Deep mutational scan, measured.
Amino acid sequence: ITGDVSAANKDAIRKQMDAAASKGDVETYRKLKAKLKGIR
């Protein structure tokens, strides 16, 4: 179950990262990237 949750989280975070990148929001992008590392 835990694996599914983190996989879903990663997917959601990647989508947020894409949105931040397209807006040029480097700050948010970095925060999300750090979150991704924390999940692993």
Rank of each mutant, 00 (worst) to 15 (best):
R30E: 08
V26F: 15
K37G: 05
V26I: 13
D11Y: 04
V26D: 07
K23T: 07
K23N: 08
A34W: 04
A8E: 08
G24T: 02
S6M: 12
G24Q: 04
L32I: 01
D11N: 09
D11K: 12
L32P: 00
D25A: 01
Y29D: 00
D25S: 00
I1L: 09
R14Q: 08
A20I: 01
D25P: 00
A8L: 13
A19F: 08
S22A: 14
V26S: 06
A34F: 03
T28C: 15
R14K: 07
A34R: 13
R14E: 05
S22R: 14
I1D: 08
K35A: 09
S6F: 09
K37H: 11
A7P: 09
L32K: 00
R40Q: 13
K37R: 13
A19W: 09
A21M: 15
K37Q: 11
R14T: 05
Y29T: 01
A34N: 06
L32G: 01
S22K: 14
I1H: 11
A20F: 02
K35V: 13
G24V: 02
Q16S: 04
R30D: 03
R40M: 14
A8G: 08
M17A: 02
Q16H: 04
D25Y: 01
A34E: 06
N9W: 15
S22T: 07
I1E: 09
S22M: 13
L32Q: 00
I39K: 06
R14A: 04
N9F: 15
A8H: 12
G38M: 11
L32H: 00
V5K: 11
K33V: 07
I13R: 00
T28I: 03
I1K: 09
K10I: 15
G3N: 10
A19D: 12
I39V: 06
A21Q: 07
A12W: 14
V26W: 15
A34P: 00
M17C: 03
R40H: 11
T28S: 06
D25H: 02
D11A: 13
Q16K: 06
Q16E: 08
G3R: 08
K10Y: 15
I1G: 09
Y29M: 05
I13C: 00
K15H: 06
Y29Q: 01
T28H: 04
K35M: 14
K35T: 05
K31Y: 06
K37S: 08
V5T: 10
K33E: 08
A34G: 03
G38K: 14
L36V: 01
T2R: 12
I13V: 04
A34S: 05
K23A: 13
K15M: 08
K31V: 02
R30T: 04
T28N: 04
G24L: 03
K31G: 00
T2V: 11
M17S: 01
D4Y: 06
A12V: 08
N9Q: 13
A21E: 04
R40W: 13
G24W: 04
L36F: 03
L32M: 03
A34V: 05
I39R: 06
G24R: 03
K37E: 14
G38I: 08
Y29W: 07
G3S: 10
K15S: 05
D25E: 02
A8N: 10
G38H: 10
D11R: 14
G38V: 07
I13A: 02
K37P: 03
T2D: 10
R14V: 05
D4T: 11
